[in-house]
Structures are given as C-alpha cells and as structure tokens.
C-alpha cells in the first residue's frame, strides 16, 4: 500500500516535532523522504562528550515495512563518531537497520535511541576493521551491504 508510508511519516513527524527524548533534536524534515536529526551522548563517555552528531534518515516508499537508510553526515561542526561499527563515511553497521533486523514497529525515535545507546555503551575509540578500504571501495547503498555482524557485544 503506497499510502501507508507517507501517512505514517506524517504522524511520526507530528509526534517528534512536539517531543523527543533528551539528546535527540529534529533538525529538518522538509519532505517525507529525507530527515535530519542531531544526537548527543548524554553521559560522561569521554569518546563522545561535548559532541553533537548528525543523522540522515532516508525513507523509501515502503517504509515502515522496509527499514529507513540511516547514516551519519559529516559537517564542520558535526563529525562522524568513533565507533567500531561506524565507518568513517558515516555508514552504520547495525542489525536493526538491515532487512533482517528491522521491524515495522520501529520508528525514527526508536532508531535514534538505539544509536544513542550504541554510542553510550561503546568503550573503544576506533573504526571498524578495514575501514579505509571499505570507504574507498564502497559504492553500495548501506542497505545493500551484506554486513557481517561480527560483534554482538554492542
């Protein structure tokens, strides 16, 4: 049903325009295809303290049946967070965002919170193995990458 996605996004937008959990702010949602949100890590994790990161959500017309495409965006004031599952081009390796891990009951807010907690729980100030090579070679969209979820500790 083609109408499902836009209608649900309208509702989600109405909801997150009013209230969002602490550390998450809506930057822009000019249309129902691409939204930007800022997230902060609120506890005293030294890796992320004082930083704000920007997330880009891209929705297909099949959302929420299919997962949105979520990546970090690099700007002057918005770096890509250091994390063993986040590549330096902003691609996030998170099972929640793959077709197998996704569930249509998830929403923008819950995805942001998942990413927030993924950062909060991290203690390694490093990139994933093979990051440089991946960033250089990858032309695929994140959802088409066959990630190997090698690390289930986070």
């Amino acid at each position: 049903m083609a109408n499902l996605g836009p209608r649900r996004l309208t509702k989600e937008l109405a909801k997150i325009s009013n209230s969002l959990p602490p550390g998450i702010t809506l930057v822009s949602a000019d249309n129902l295809e691409e939204w930007f949100l800022d997230i902060q890590v609120l506890d005293q994790n030294p890796i992320y303290a004082g930083e704000t990161y920007r997330l880009k959500f891209k929705f297909s017309t099949s959302y929420p049946i299919e997962p949105p495409e979520v990546t970090f965006v690099k700007l002057d004031t918005r770096p890509i967070p250091m994390h063993p599952h986040i590549y330096s081009n902003g691609i996030i390796c998170l099972d929640l965002l793959g077709s197998q891990g996704w569930s249509p009951v998830q929403n923008v807010e819950s995805v942001c919170m998942s990413i927030q907690s993924m950062l909060t729980g991290n203690t390694k100030n490093e990139r994933p193995p093979g990051d440089e090579e991946f960033v250089r070679g990858n032309r695929l969209r994140p959802r088409d990458i066959d990630f190997y979820y090698h690390d289930n500790t986070v």
Partner: peptide, 13 residues
C-alpha cells in the same frame, strides 16, 4: 505486508 518481508512477529521477532 510486514510478514512478506520478514516472517516474524514485528514486535517480539
């Protein structure tokens, strides 16, 4: 629709 993509319960998987 959701089941066609992934044959699990969307809430508890």
């Amino acid at each position: 629709q959701a089941h066609a993509l992934n044959p699990v319960c969307p809430v508890d998987r």
